[in-house]
Amino acid sequence: MTQLNLDGRRFAMVSSTASRVDPDSPTRFLYQEADGVIWGSYDGDTVAHGRFVGTRRHDEIELSYVHVTKDGGSPVAGRSTSRIEPLPDGRFRLVEEFQFDGDDTPQVSVCEELPA
């Protein structure tokens, strides 16, 4: 696997079982990483502003997240575990299994790293 460090890498959601992904305005994520600690922000599609924090061990990420939606609803929170997969061109794909707090239905999303 290409040297694994997510610091400064940007990703865009390409699919999700929780909702339709708007291809013209997908949710975009900015990852920061130091010493195995992961944090960052996200917005786009239905999300006005979101934050996440967690850890990375090898090619697995565990996060907690919270965001507010563009429709002004209550904050949405949850937890996720992502598997980092290398793409042939050196970018990364994140395959995430997540659950919203208060909902026992597991969901899956896929994000791909945006070109530099």
Rank of each mutant, 00 (worst) to 15 (best):
M1H: 04
Q3N: 03
Q3A: 07
N5L: 05
L6F: 03
R9W: 01
R9T: 02
R10W: 02
R10A: 09
R10T: 13
M13L: 13
V14F: 09
S15W: 00
S15P: 01
T17H: 00
T17L: 00
S19V: 01
R20M: 08
V21F: 07
D22L: 14
P23Y: 02
P23I: 12
D24G: 13
D24N: 09
D24M: 06
S25V: 04
S25I: 02
P26S: 11
P26Q: 13
L30K: 04
Y31L: 09
Q32E: 14
E33A: 05
A34H: 07
G36C: 00
I38V: 15
I38A: 07
W39Y: 08
G40E: 15
S41F: 05
S41I: 15
S41C: 11
Y42T: 14
D43W: 01
D43P: 00
D45V: 03
V47K: 12
A48L: 14
H49N: 14
G50C: 05
G50D: 05
G50M: 04
F52D: 12
V53E: 15
V53N: 12
V53H: 14
G54P: 12
G54N: 10
T55R: 13
R56V: 10
R56G: 06
R57I: 12
R57L: 10
H58W: 05
D59S: 13
E60L: 12
E60A: 15
E62T: 13
L63D: 15
V66T: 13
V66K: 03
H67N: 14
V68G: 14
K70A: 06
D71P: 03
D71Y: 08
G73C: 10
S74R: 12
P75I: 10
V76P: 06
V76F: 05
A77Q: 14
A77T: 12
G78R: 05
S80C: 07
T81M: 11
T81D: 03
S82Q: 12
S82R: 10
S82G: 08
I84D: 04
I84W: 06
P86R: 01
L87G: 04
P88Y: 04
G90C: 09
R93W: 01
R93E: 15
R93Y: 07
L94G: 02
L94A: 00
V95C: 00
E97K: 08
F100D: 04
F100I: 11
D101Q: 06
G102V: 04
D103C: 05
D103W: 07
T105V: 07
T105L: 01
Q107T: 08
Q107R: 12
V108L: 03
V108D: 00
V108S: 00
S109Y: 00
S109K: 07
S109A: 13
E112C: 11
L114R: 09
A116I: 09
